[in-house]
Amino acid sequence: MADLGDVLEAGDRRDDTGKVALSLRIRRYNPEVSDESWWDEFALEMEPNDRLLDALHEVKWHHDGTLALRRSCAHGICGSDAMLINGRNALACKILVKDVAPRCTVEPIRGLAVLKDLIVDMEPFFAGYRSVLPFLVDDGSAPDRERVQSPEERHRFDDTTKCILCAACTTSCPIFWSDDEYVGPAAIVNAHRFIYDSRDEAARERLKILSEKTGVFRCRTTFNCTQACPRGIQVTQAIQEVKRSILFERF
């Protein structure tokens, strides 16, 4: 381990003052104004460590109050502010200004109807989620205390428990854009979370649902979903595991 004195000195040297210029281009849409979307551009001065969400707030609070976006926790957990940022899906609260300055383009996520500015209709996304039985199904024989589950069994589905339902994966998927029947990556991730949980009894039902024409075999393994996931979930791998289970189980 490095000498404490050196580490302290390095910490004291870290300074984050000073502003950077950010030109923020936002795709706008407001059905009360026009049937067509348009672009607005805002010239901002931000701190390098500000989040892109802070820049959007700067626009909303001091330039144009009509800008509409969803956000809540502002640190990458609530999943409200997935957007297309410089052509890639990400959460606006997990992108720092210094990483996108001096120019950044923000658009709504794709494949869901835009309702206003950066707000899209999330209902089809949640309908996909609900279709895969996203809850533990047991045989009703739970003991008075906790069920036993080994650390290895618990680890088997750990990755897919991280999902925050932000839709960054699903709306980065080219199949989802063109096929509104496909349940999409997020729904499969949430099915995966239960299929491989040793306490669950409904894996076969979920695999059956996902073996249908709206399910996993629509996936063409483009890996967009894995790249888009702000939680670092190996989404494509989870989908492949579900595909293999369906083939192995011979539905």
Binding site: R147, V148, P151, E153, R154, F157, T161, F194
Partner: peptide
């Protein structure tokens, strides 16, 4: 736990 919450486990499988 009965509703499926994935608690971390002890080596013998308890919460």
């Amino acid at each position: 736990e009965h509703w499926g919450l994935p608690f971390n486990r002890t080596p013998d499988g308890r919460i």
